Computed example of a mutant assay.
Amino acid sequence: MTPAPMHPALIVFDLDGTLLDTHADLVESLNHTIAALGLEPVSYDDLTHLVGQGARVMIERACRLRGHPLESAAVPQLLERFVAHYAGNMPGHTEPYPGLVAAMDRLKADGYRLAVCTNKLESLAFGLLDKLDLVSYFDAITGGDTFEYRKPDARHLTGTIDRAGGDIARTVMIGDSINDIAVAKNAAVPSIAVPFGYSDVPVSSLDPDVIITHYDELTPELVARLLREYAQKVAV
């Protein structure tokens, strides 16, 4: 009997701090939002402690950082203010990280599928990637409001894999923060960490399977080796 063909391997990327350097626009829109409360602006140095759980939590954390804890009833209006400013200024200063597009071209040429799994609102993630002409690279783009759960819940990643037509046994997660490495562990897929994002701790302390310092290192050969070695480790 002829064996069933293998699914193409799938690479799932986080967005902010992994695919795209979004820090300037996040800070700008966040400061625009909290200015409505008369709060002092936050800086890039604060960003690593604020991002990772989507805009709603980022706003709540920024207000708490400025000594102004929010009542839950105040959040929707501030979130609307943030989304309007952020969406209205896309793509702003945001750019793909160096070497990313070339890396994705290599992977696509070798038959890999690509997807995005971010805690950013899906509409903002899709809109930003669309403005940067990157949407066509991805078989699925899921955000923090796509499902009823979000990273580091494994179901956010497994749902993304399903939407991309991938196979969990042939999937790799790439990210810059604890949520990305944790969701990979929770879903039992190998992880690649990048150190140039917004983690508030060294990514090495998150125990990813591989760390790359530039997208020049993200090759089909690296991914194939990681999948092979991870499968062997799990089988032991």
Rank of each mutant, 00 (worst) to 15 (best):
V51S: 01
M58Y: 02
P69L: 09
L65Q: 11
I11G: 08
L20M: 07
T18F: 03
D14V: 10
S72E: 12
D45A: 07
S72D: 12
G54H: 13
L47F: 13
R64H: 14
L39D: 14
L15G: 01
A35P: 09
G17T: 07
M58S: 06
Y44T: 07
E40H: 12
L50C: 11
D25F: 01
H49W: 14
L15C: 07
L47Y: 08
D16V: 04
L26W: 00
Q53D: 12
R56K: 15
A62Y: 06
L10N: 12
L30A: 10
G38Y: 04
L30Y: 06
P69T: 10
A36S: 15
A24Q: 10
F13H: 14
A55H: 09
R61C: 07
R56A: 15
E71H: 09
P69F: 10
V42L: 10
T22K: 01
L30S: 09
V27Q: 00
R61G: 05
L70T: 08
D14L: 04
H32M: 05
H49G: 14
A62V: 11
F13M: 15
L26A: 00
C63E: 06
D46L: 02
E71Y: 04
P69C: 11
L47K: 04
G17Y: 03
C63T: 05
F13T: 12
M58D: 03
